[in-house]
Design a protein around this nucleic acid. Structure first.
Lengths: 264, 264
DNA sequence: TAGTGGTCTAGACCACTTC
DNA sequence: AAGTGGTCTAGACCACTAC
């Protein structure tokens, strides 16, 4: 009980389980983590209160909190004042993540593309659209038919149909501006943020009509990408239906291993 | 001063008292964030030392640290003892992330699939393989040709060629086990972890040979997915080349907005 | 040697939840 | 009223980096 502070940030490269020269909070965090993995605290259980943990390990409340914070950063627990600390998972659920800085990153490598609007009209959600927009069946949505070109290029990358919830019809006013994108207009004009994008990728054969628009061979293979743009509270704001003919576009994603609980 | 602690985490709408109602560290973090965005501290600059910030805002070092921690959690700064706090970015670089708990999640919705190995041999990286594995040109890699079936199904989902770096040839021993996956065997048998997966998605037309294996129409559209499995230090460990005929498989990804600096 | 961030203590008041 | 996590203070020693 005499040894005071141990040391600052030493090498101590996140040896899982080991705990020789690591800070106290890290050792306590490892101990708690081991308890959770061993099942001493099951999912749904409460961890002991901070003061109990502090007493149990002979540390101050600050250090106990710092240990618990690690578990929180790993996403293993939730905390609520008045309730306590609840175990939510025994292992870090997410191991790999992919990141983008901007939704545009989903669309094309090069952000330097241009959208050409072929037509703009109101459509009723029925027929082939209905399975894509079940919850909006019968509603009238704004629809843009577009081609996307590389900067200065003559050959389109994709044929894209964009459906927009009627609430946001004002974006029509500025949709023809160069470099306009639906989601940016939604943010600018309606103050709405895209909270989530759900993307579904498949393949298809080009119809005669689409092939003609894209200058590709009818029946040829094409990437078919649906993107649902979802706002606050799971509200669907927009849907885009993209068709990319073979070899004009490649979708790349990089998934990286998370090391959240280790260093920081 | 006399005023001690302010308050806990409250909503506190428009109490005309002092500041907004947010904790002090949050207000200070916002102020620092504003300074960074305004350019008062440019990228590469050092933020003032903790004690200066504490003095400047009339708070304790703990509270100043807590404020700075938020900026760190947002990825805007790096900190080093003896040096100081360096501004690394003015805005959170990553806004949207997608997560998976397991690499298997990349492959198919249902994890209940079975791999059938058609053949296994050593191939030299040349010819059509060379552009995919430039750095390994001329090397001999282990290659598996496989079909993946849904649990109990008769119709394959995909034709997959798997290339494995010669270092890891031992996985051959257990590759035929049910539910074997390359990356899990790499972890089990060689103690190597996949640090990153790079995925490239395109489309193609089925060759006669592949179509025959898959029981699909030659020339029909197919998803073409390359996955590079990368270990520590950017070392390429394995590559898989997947061909999914139309309608047998859909790739889904969900990108969520990060809200790291806001609540927690 | 001086100054930085990293760790730690011992206390305190607060808001929230449960009894 | 009691107990929880959330916030905050005023101090301290440490390891690291620069001078």
């Amino acid at each position: 009980m005499s040894t005071r502070a141990k040391r600052g940030a030493t090498a101590a490269p996140s040896r899982p389980g080991r705990a020789t020269g690591a800070p106290r909070y890290a050792r306590v965090a490892d101990a708690l983590l081991a308890d959770i993995e061993r099942g001493k605290y099951a999912v749904g259980d409460l961890l002991p209160p901070e003061l109990d943990i502090a007493e149990q390990y002979g540390i101050s409340r600050y250090t106990a909190r710092e240990a618990i914070r690690r578990l929180h950063d790993m996403g293993l627990i939730t905390r609520r004042a008045g309730i306590g600390t609840t175990v939510k998972a025994t292992h870090t659920q997410v191991r790999y993540t992919a990141s983008i800085s901007d939704i545009t990153d989903l669309l094309h490598y090069s952000k330097k593309t241009q959208l050409k609007i072929l037509s703009e009209d109101w459509v009723r959600i029925e027929g082939p659209l209905e399975p894509l927009l079940k919850d909006a069946a019968g509603q009238r949505w704004l629809k843009f038919s577009t081609l996307r070109y590389p900067a200065g290029g003559e050959v389109p990358i994709s044929f894209t149909e964009i459906l927009v919830h009627p609430t946001y019809e004002r974006i029509r006013e500025r949709m023809h501006e160069p470099n306009a994108t639906v989601y940016r207009l939604l943010e600018d004009m309606h103050g709405e943020t895209i909270h989530e994008v759900r993307q579904e990728i498949g393949c298809t054969a080009l119809t005669r009509k689409t092939a003609a628009l894209l200058g590709a061979r009818a029946g040829g293979p094409a990437l078919y990408v649906l993107r649902y743009y979802i706002g606050k509270g799971d509200s669907l704001m927009s849907l885009s239906i993209n068709t990319y003919p073979q070899d004009r576009f490649k979708l790349s994603t990089s998934w990286r291993l998370d090391r959240r609980g280790d260093d920081r």
